[in-house]
């Protein structure tokens, strides 16, 4: 296990280098440069332009820029936005807590509603509740996020006025709607995954064994069936959390939440390469870390998986 963990961590390094090169070169291979993007529809005076180009090392060959950038990244410095003159680290430090809170609450929704719906559906397979879960998850999966977001904002925020429409001014209350919207898609997947997984598990021989042992129905389901059925679900949620922590572009923008995705979205729109590259890199790191954790968690949850 220890060796596996070390190997797995070492494996992150080449993955990270590959991903960073891809992101960097893709970001900087686009026509034009950040300084022109900063100038807007009016060309910048030459001297101002040159001063900025020098300041952001844009006069160096792309590969040197990459090496320089990665050198900075290794020291924990993800660069500075040309358009905003702000350190990427500062922007990220400001936005990540919001994204994290949003992601965490979204996962809570996934866990509570998704799991419950999935379990009920599996136990009532073929009955009304099962059909209800199937139909509503299909709807949840097919509604575009922004449609759901706008609708909830209008109904819950404007019509009923029971939750804030946008922003984070009201703390936890502000998070409920966006977290729900953010979690909806995964919530539906979790419900379906739980349903399928649990229904399959219920047919397993060991569940029959548990029944034959004279265990209470709740214990047969909870201790014996769910414990196995939830392994893929937990894995999914872990990976999902990793993805959500990378920022939720649409949800954060619609709900005006100053998170990672919110900034990433605007940076893409304004060609703010430094933010796009820096944020994407950090998101990749978070994702890689989360998948490592999920892998290790998987081993802890399923003793059949041996990493030796």
């Amino acid at each position: 296990m220890v060796r596996y963990t070390i190997r797995r961590i070492l494996l992150i390094i080449p993955t990270f280098i590959g991903a960073s090169a891809l992101i960097f070169f893709a970001g900087f291979a686009l026509p034009g440069d950040p300084v022109s993007a900063f100038g807007g529809e009016r060309a910048l005076p030459e001297a101002t332009r040159n001063a900025l180009i020098e300041r952001y090392r844009l006069d160096q060959p792309v590969f040197d820029q990459y090496l320089g950038y990665m050198g900075d990244v290794l020291t924990g410095d993800f660069g500075e936005s040309v358009l905003r003159r702000r350190s990427i680290n500062d922007i990220f430090a400001e936005t990540f807590p919001n994204t994290l809170r949003l992601a965490a609450l979204a996962v809570v929704f996934e866990l509570v509603i998704g799991l419950l719906a999935g379990i009920v559906a599996a136990l009532r397979k073929g009955k009304f509740l099962d059909s209800l879960v199937l139909v509503s998850t299909i709807i949840a999966i097919s509604i575009p996020v922004f449609v759901l977001g706008f609708s909830l904002q209008y109904i819950v925020g404007v019509q009923w006025q029971i939750l804030p429409v946008a922003g984070l001014q009201e703390g936890f209350r502000s998070l409920i709607l966006p977290a729900f919207v953010l979690g909806t898609l995964s919530l539906a997947y979790v419900a379906r995954l739980t349903r399928t997984s649990l229904a399959e598990t219920l047919r397993e021989d060991y569940v029959r064994t548990a029944q034959a042992k004279g265990l209470r129905h709740s214990r047969v389901i909870g201790r014996h069936a769910l414990r196995n059925a939830l392994i893929p679900v937990i894995t999914f949620i872990g990976i999902d959390l990793g993805a959500l922590m990378g920022g939720a572009i649409v949800t954060e923008t619609i709900f005006n939440i100053n998170g990672v995705g919110f900034n990433l979205f605007r940076a893409i729109g304004t060609r703010d390469n430094a933010i796009v590259v820096g944020f994407t890199l950090i998101a990749v790191m978070i994702y890689l870390t989360m998948s490592l954790i999920v892998d290790l968690l998987y081993a802890a949850l399923d003793p059949r998986i041996r990493y030796e």
């Binding site: 021989d205 042992k213 003793p303």
Partner: peptide, 22 residues
């Protein structure tokens, strides 16, 4: 439930799938 296990017990054909893997 009391009779099951306590009074009448059962073993199954495939002991691998009949035991809970986790």
């Amino acid at each position: 439930r009391f009779i099951r296990g306590q009074e009448i017990a059962m073993i199954f054909q495939d002991p691998l799938t009949s035991l809970n893997p986790v």
